[in-house]
C-alpha cells in the first residue's frame, strides 16, 4: 500500500478548494477531474465529481448499483459518445489534454486509454489476431515486430505460457479467465497509459478472479488503472486508492487502507461494512 498522502481530491461535497491542495507534490496525476457532471437526456447521472487519479496506481470505484461508476468510467475514454443523449460538462483531463473537447480525437484517446469489459469479449478470431488487431489499426509496429509485440503483450498479461502453443487457434476456445486476460493483453498491445476495467472479474470463477487480480497488481507498475468493483475484498486487495460513489455523487475518496478501516463518512462506513448496497 502506498505510503503517500491521500492523493485524491476531496469529494465535491466538501467546501474546500479543489485539487492540488490534497495532492502530494511527488504524486503524478494522470486523470484530473473537476466539477464534472454527466447526464443521460434529462437524467443527471453524475454531480460535481472532483477527483484526481494518480499515475501507476490502482484506483477502485465502489458504490451501490446505479450510482454512476460505469458512467464515470465510460466518460474517461468517451465510450459514452455511443449513447445518443449522453452529455457531460466540467473538466476531465488526461495529462494536459481535454478529454471532453469534441475536437479531441477519440481514436487517439482510446489508444491511450484502454478498456476491459465486464464480460470477456474476445473477437471471434485467433488469439494472435485478437492481439494484432489494435496495433495494425494504429500502425504501431514495423512488420517484423508484430510477432514480438504480440508475445510481449501476452506476457505482460500473464497468459503467454498458457497460449504460446496455440496462438493461431480461436480465442473463443479459452476459458473465461484466460479470455479476460487476453482482453487485457489486447488492450495493452496498443500501448495505453491508462486501463479502465468495469467489473472485470464479475463473470469469472474464483480461480480466474485470483489470476486477474494478480495481473492487475502486476500491471500497476506500468499503467494507471481504474477498476470498478462490487466486491469490497477485491477493492481492498487490488487497489491503492478507493473512491466511493453514491447516487451520482462522490462521497469519499482516499487511500484504500483508510477507507476500509477508518472511513470518514457514515455512508461509506455503512457501505464498506456491508450494511447496505
Amino acid at each position: 500500500m502506498p505510503d503517500t498522502q491521500p492523493n485524491l481530491a476531496k469529494p465535491a461535497t466538501a467546501p474546500t478548494a479543489p485539487t492540488a491542495a490534497a495532492t502530494a507534490p511527488t504524486e503524478q496525476i494522470t486523470i484530473r477531474v473537476q466539477d464534472f457532471n454527466a447526464w443521460y437526456g434529462a437524467y443527471h447521472a453524475l454531480h460535481n465529481i472532483t477527483l484526481n487519479i494518480p499515475s501507476q496506481r490502482v484506483t477502485s470505484l465502489i458504490g451501490p448499483s446505479g450510482c454512476g461508476k460505469s458512467t464515470f468510467l465510460r466518460w474517461i475514454n468517451r465510450m459514452n459518445d455511443l449513447v445518443p443523449n449522453a452529455r457531460a460538462d466540467g473538466v476531465m483531463q488526461l495529462d494536459q489534454d481535454d478529454v471532453l473537447d469534441r475536437a479531441f480525437d477519440v481514436v487517439e484517446l482510446r489508444r491511450r486509454v484502454g478498456m476491459v469489459f465486464q464480460k470477456p469479449n474476445p473477437f471471434p478470431k485467433s488469439i494472435y489476431e485478437n492481439i494484432a488487431f489494435g496495433p495494425r489499426l494504429h500502425k504501431r509496429f514495423h512488420h517484423s515486430d508484430l510477432d514480438a509485440l504480440v508475445e510481449q503483450s501476452l506476457r505482460a498479461a500473464a497468459i503467454w505460457d498458457e497460449v504460446k502453443d496455440r496462438l493461431h487457434n480461436s480465442a473463443l476456445g479459452l476459458s473465461g479467465g484466460q479470455q479476460q486476460r487476453l482482453c487485457i493483453a489486447r488492450a495493452i498491445a496498443v500501448g495505453p497509459e491508462v486501463l479502465l476495467m468495469d467489473e472485470p472479474c464479475s463473470a469469472l470463477d474464483p480461480r480466474s478472479t485470483a489470476s486477474v487480480e494478480a495481473l492487475i497488481r502486476e500491471l500497476r507498475q506500468t499503467f494507471t488503472i481504474v477498476v470498478v468493483t462490487h466486491n469490497m475484498q477485491q477493492a481492498a486487495r487490488v487497489s491503492d486508492l478507493t473512491a466511493f460513489f453514491f447516487e451520482g455523487k462522490l462521497v469519499e475518496a482516499g487511500p484504500t487502507d483508510g477507507m476500509f478501516t477508518n472511513p470518514k463518512n457514515k455512508q461509506t462506513e455503512d457501505y464498506v461494512t456491508g450494511r447496505f448496497g
Partner: peptide
C-alpha cells in the same frame, strides 16, 4: 453480431468504419 464485439473494437480505437 453481439454488440460487445463492436464495443471491444471501438474501445481499442477503431473507427466505426474499421
Amino acid at each position: 453480431v453481439p454488440s460487445s464485439l463492436r464495443q471491444a473494437s471501438l474501445a481499442i480505437g477503431a473507427t466505426p468504419w474499421q
